[in-house]
Design a protein around this nucleic acid. Structure first.
Lengths: 235, 235
DNA sequence: TCGGTTTTTAGTGTAGACAGTTTGCAAAGT
DNA sequence: ACTTTGCAAACTGTCTACACTAAAAACCGA
């Protein structure tokens, strides 16, 4: 990386092994390499990663705090189980938080930022028509990310774009629960931007809530159908 | 509990040392024994607790995930710093989450539960008139706790009554930022209960939001005044 | 006396070893 | 055949020791 000139303008963050391991674990869970419900054997995983158990355990503790992992004393660590109920809970919380974020954004966002958002949406419109599927992923995240960011509320930002988002990503990989709503989502996004442009907090919050609420209902149904299909397969 | 026959029907939870240490640390932070900004020396603290550094470090990692502690690689661990901005951020998030909780409660709470809530309020009314100060503490918590609980949303509950609440408690001990609003708070609580009794989600959410918003504005002012006074003292 | 450089030292980061529990298996008893 | 009990292997929980990093102190030259 950065084979350019200069000394290397990269910030020397001096990440500790625990930080690295935490990220690797996180990615593994989110990517589905570690399936929900799966037991984690510390020694085995430590060997695979070429480290000792100490740092691994510390990384696990952190992810416990973020609810990606669950530990039972003297038994072991498991990847957090997924269920339609839990997904519904997550999205309800997200609805509350992002609704608030959008409300604040309506008062704080500059016109320049809103214009950027509109440009983003236009770019997304192309993806939708070409059904590249891109929009479902990072495109959607980008949209929500910018709104959260504009609040300037660090705590809120870290919840929406950090913890909560990671948790939701687990579901995305598990099945195609999210997505399949590209067109509707885009229209809802447009509505949100319109409210932001009008600097109308109430409308902005309502629009965001409706957007996430729709996603919640859609995801819930899709998840339950997928679960039913799984069950049928097992017969 | 259960001093009856049989061997002992108590659940043997077998908490690990890390669990115990986590709680002790948490209490120490919340109680103000560990002041915000204070550096924590692992070896020293481990000696004081009579344990080794391993479990202590794991406990610290957990509290990092909950944002009560902050670690800089190769530097050390500090108790999370407090600031009016941060408090404001916290309470904004709380407003969003508890507002949502209250909305759901309006549809889910049974009439029996609502009556209990009313009883609770009457009991509180006495405390307020006798200015025992009790209400500011566990009484208020109890009220909010019951509403969150009634949603049945485990994730939401754990945020409101767990993580967020702990964070806020740090501020309560630091200064008298919270409180001094017993009478107003009681009236606001009454308004919330009325909305719940009417099973009106919109009104319930609005009442809870107003309640927390008032607390936020009050706390912000109190905190800033206290900070200003501290500064004056230093002269 | 001051600025910069080297040395020291305290503290974090990591690894490895040991102890305590749990669980699965197998053998014995009913 | 089925339950029970004892054993053994495996894994988690904890502690100790060592390596590495960064801040502080001492030192030297101007």
């Amino acid at each position: 990386m950065a084979p350019t000139s200069k000394v290397s303008s990269e910030k020397i963050v001096a990440k500790s092994l625990v930080d690295v391991v935490t990220e690797r674990l996180e990615d593994a869970i989110v990517a589905g390499d570690l399936v929900p419900g799966e037991r984690i054997l510390e020694q085995v995983l430590a060997n695979e990663m070429g480290i000792s158990r100490g740092p691994l355990r510390e990384a696990i503790r952190r992810l416990e705090g973020r609810r990606l992992l669950e530990r039972k004393p003297n038994i072991g660590v498991r990847v957090a189980e997924l269920s339609p109920e839990r997904l519904n809970e997550l999205l309800t919380v997200r609805e509350a938080l992002e609704g608030m974020a959008c409300r604040i954004a309506a008062t704080k966002m500059t016109d320049a930022e809103i214009q950027d958002l509109e440009k983003l949406l236009n770019a997304h419109a192309r993806d939708v028509s070409s059904s590249s599927g891109y929009y479902q992923q990072s495109g959607d995240f980008d949209f929500h990310f910018r709104i959260a960011q504009s609040t300037g509320n660090e705590f809120l930002i870290s919840m929406v774009t950090g913890d909560l988002y990671d948790l939701l990503r687990v579901y995305r990989y598990k099945s195609s629960t999210m997505g399949g709503r590209a067109e509707e989502a885009l229209n809802e996004h447009k509505k949100i931007v319109a409210a932001l442009a009008a600097h109308d907090p109430d409308a902005a919050e309502a629009a965001m809530r409706e957007h996430i609420s729709n996603a919640r209902i859609h995801a819930k149904r899709a998840f339950e159908e997928a679960a039913a299909a799984d069950k049928a397969d097992a017969s």
